[in-house]
């Protein structure tokens, strides 16, 4: 099943399919390791529901939902 990273629930994992967005944000997402094929675990959400915290390539990364919506994911069962 495919969905966007900002729609993930806590504890859900998946694989990056594609990354969209404009130059600056997309490049930043790529630079931080969010590239197709990378595995992501949604670790938690901030007390107000946004931003989110993910584990990727063995480290913790935080991003806002507005940025996470550019990341298309294949959900892992």
């Amino acid at each position: 099943m495919q969905k966007k990273l900002d729609e993930f629930a806590i504890g859900e994992t998946g694989v990056v399919k594609a990354v969209g967005g404009e130059g600056k944000i997309k490049r930043r997402l790529f630079d931080m390791g969010i590239t197709p094929g990378a595995e992501i675990l949604l670790r938690k959400k901030a007390p107000l529901g946004d931003p989110i915290e993910i584990t990727i390539r063995g480290y913790e990364l935080t991003l806002r939902k507005t940025e996470a919506q550019f990341v298309n994911m294949e959900v892992k069962k």
Partner: peptide, 9 residues
């Protein structure tokens, strides 16, 4: 500014 930030251990 974008908020795509590492959370260091």
């Amino acid at each position: 500014p974008p908020f795509i930030m590492e959370l260091p251990a």
